[in-house]
Design a protein around this nucleic acid. Structure first.
Lengths: 291, 291
DNA sequence: GGATTTCCGAAATGATTGTAACAGAAAATG
DNA sequence: CATTTTCTGTTACAATCATTTCGGAAATCC
């Protein structure tokens, strides 16, 4: 006898799914298909919608560990309540109407919207192609960003260095370019970040790199940097935010997902490398612990 | 005879509020107070909770333009359903539903979950206090990060410099600290980023800064950096991700929201500063446009 | 203050709900 | 193929629900 009490309704439904009979599964999938609205009404409505009889629904509820339909439903209602209280969905209700939600919530809502817009628009093939480029050990990787996106290039490089060798951050000061460009061979990859207001330095570097035969990936906003004209691949992100600036969160998501993607592509070689890196960090940390 | 058909349940409740009788208003406010869960159950439950009789509830529903309680409730359920269709829940859905989704979607789902978890746990008072610290022109701001979070400190500093003067990025190389620490006066602010694996350098700098009398803000993950022990304020973020390492997206959201918050607090002084900054950038860009 | 109107809940009532019991159908087992 | 087991819907019934009715309480108006 195993009891799995502390689970949510949705989880229980999913978990129980394989052990259910045909009609019961019919109900369960119907609920999941339009969760949770489907199960917010009366048992008869649910049964009719799922095209089974009401006792089937009752039996399902009991199989899930509830005492009956009302019990099941009140559990569900509790969760729905919690969902709706959750900061992101939280409507600007509460006395006095809209403008009193905390900026954290407003900002987060914008971020989520951006993310959704970005993802719905990204071409998976393009994305995978970029990941493949970055995962190719025979290519060197260079990255640069503009005034605002410099930090993202930095982030990409710091973490990518853990996964593979030959990753270089190009400063946005153009006097550091020549040595790097000197090293750039055909087939090498430049990842350039450029969001509005687009910067000339990025455009110039991209042009120079293309002349060297590099593959250029441009990560930009949805109004598209002019540098993208020279790029092999372009990833665009939505960056609107309720503030004087833009939000670069979706760009960070792209970067992190690229990292995850590259890392999973090269796991065989990466694993050892990461382990070694960890130990080295550990030892250097130990070394520095003088205090 | 005025008919206001095309309104939402919540709006109708609010709109009708003044024209209601005592008992009816009692019901309406009770529903609004815990909207919409309060009205998802049976009429008796609602009536008891609002401490009125069931006929009162019925009369209220009819006054709002519904045919009765069931009609009212089904309208409400429709809206709840629409609410729950909002972005993040959908993400949850396609993330949990189909295991073969692209890594972009899986990653984004994790990101949204992190965000939600982070926000539900952040103390608004704390957050605002930090924003106030950063907005105070009489304090100098310093920021530093660890191996991974260095980029976030960089980002914070780059953008904060636009909003206000006296913002400095501390490298994680400890030989650059002494001059900065020399400048640090009591009341100055250090923003330190530290996520697992926590780094000794951050801890050390925090300790030194506290000795100098600085106010320390630590931004860390939910397992909390040891540096937080010395901090005046701590903001924690969720960073789990479906990859070999963590996702710092929620940290970036915190940073950007802090920026937006500070910026709106100091808009009066900031506006001119930002304008000047823009023109300077424009002119320098123009200057560099030699090609 | 008396009369009128408005408001509210107790009681009554019909409708609906959720569950238990049962029986036929389907599948599995020998 | 017979038999058992499992599954599912029909029926029946108690419980609850939503609504109408109605009488009295409270407020309002001459």
């Amino acid at each position: 006898m195993d009891m799995d009490l502390p689970l949510g309704v949705e989880d229980r439904l999913r978990a129980a799914l394989p052990d259910l009979t045909r009609a019961e599964r019919q109900v369960a999938t119907h609920i999941l298909r339009q969760y949770p609205v489907a199960a917010l009404g009366s048992i008869t409505a649910l049964a009719r919608a799922a095209e089974v009889s009401t006792p089937t629904v009752v039996r399902l509820c009991q199989k899930l560990g509830y005492r009956g339909y009302p019990d099941f439903q009140s559990a569900l209602r509790g969760e729905v309540g919690a969902m709706l209280e959750s900061p992101l969905v939280k409507h600007d209700r509460w006395a006095g109407g809209a403008p009193d939600t905390h900026i954290l919530n407003r900002f987060a809502a914008a971020v989520v919207a951006n993310l959704q817009a970005t993802l719905s628009q990204i071409n998976h093939g393009d994305f995978d192609a970029v990941a493949n480029l970055l995962a190719d050990p025979s290519r060197r990787i260079f990255a640069m960003g503009g005034r605002i996106t410099h930090a993202h290039a930095d982030y990409l490089v710091s973490l990518m260095k853990v996964v593979r060798p030959e990753v270089t951050l190009l400063s946005d000061m153009s006097n550091t370019w020549p040595p790097a460009l000197l090293d750039m061979k055909p087939g090498d990859v430049l990842v350039a970040f450029d969001i509005r207001r687009y910067e000339n330095s990025v455009l110039q570097l991209v042009e120079l790199s293309v002349e060297q035969g590099a593959e250029v990936v441009v990560i930009t906003d949805r109004w598209v940097s002019p540098a993208a004209a020279h790029a092999r691949h372009t990833l665009t992100a939505h960056i609107e935010a309720p503030s004087a600036w833009d939000s670069t969160v979706s760009i960070l998501v792209l970067v992190e997902t690229l990292l995850a993607s590259v890392q999973s592509r090269t796991w065989a070689e990466t694993e050892g490398r990461m382990k070694r890196m960890e130990t080295l960090y550990d030892r250097s940390r130990f070394f520095r612990r003088y205090r």
